[in-house]
């Protein structure tokens, strides 16, 4: 044992790998892969389960929503803000130069074309996940007439874009489609 160890070390000095070095590496590498493979099922078990994923889409009827009105629906356990915007709100969202936005994105890219009055965003502040205010009448809509997050003071505009405060990104637009003119499917 001792003598073979010395000879391996001596071989290493000459920059030559021995059979033993190879066996150590191969066995160690094989073991590491095995441990990783055994660990993965446990880590992945913590990811969303099939029943959680199955609840991933919801349909909303837009008919009862008046212009200028906002409603909140639940999707994947999170609030979704649906805003039937007025013409002025749409205009104010589009009059802003993109260079003035922390997370530049045109309003046109955040709505479906031809349905420009309908803004659909996740009601989850992109800072640390609070629900911003502005859905109910009487709540603060922030300095830009959109939403205001009371937790750490983020202001969103009428397109749900971040304008001021610690949040790094615009309110997220979820995947959604118009099933017909007055019905949307989120997810």
């Amino acid at each position: 044992m001792g003598s073979s160890g010395t000879s391996a070390a001596a071989a290493g000095h000459h920059g030559q790998a021995t059979r033993r070095d190879f066996l150590y590496l191969a066995a160690g590498g094989f073991g590491a892969v095995g441990v990783g493979a055994a660990l993965w099922p446990f880590i992945h078990s913590m990811n969303p389960a099939a029943d959680v994923l199955a609840l991933a889409s919801t349909e909303v009827d837009l008919k009862p929503i008046q212009q200028g009105q906002r409603i909140t629906v639940t999707w994947r356990g999170k609030p979704v803000f649906i805003d039937h915007r007025t013409a002025e709100q749409v205009k104010s969202a589009r009059d802003v130069g993109l260079q003035d936005l922390p997370d530049p994105q045109a309003d046109q890219k955040r709505v479906k074309s031809g349905k420009d009055q309908w803004l659909v965003v996740l009601g989850v502040c992109t800072h640390l996940g609070c629900v911003p205010l502005g859905q109910k009448s009487g709540e603060s809509k922030g300095e830009y007439g959109g939403w205001f997050c009371p937790c750490h003071g983020s202001h969103y505009d009428t397109s749900g874009r971040i304008r001021k405060g610690p949040a790094p990104k615009n309110l997220e637009v979820p995947d959604f489609t118009f099933v017909n003119d007055t019905l949307i499917r989120i997810g």
Partner: peptide, 8 residues
């Protein structure tokens, strides 16, 4: 998502 085991 891994910490939550879901979307919230």
């Amino acid at each position: 998502t891994l910490l939550w085991g879901g979307f919230s």
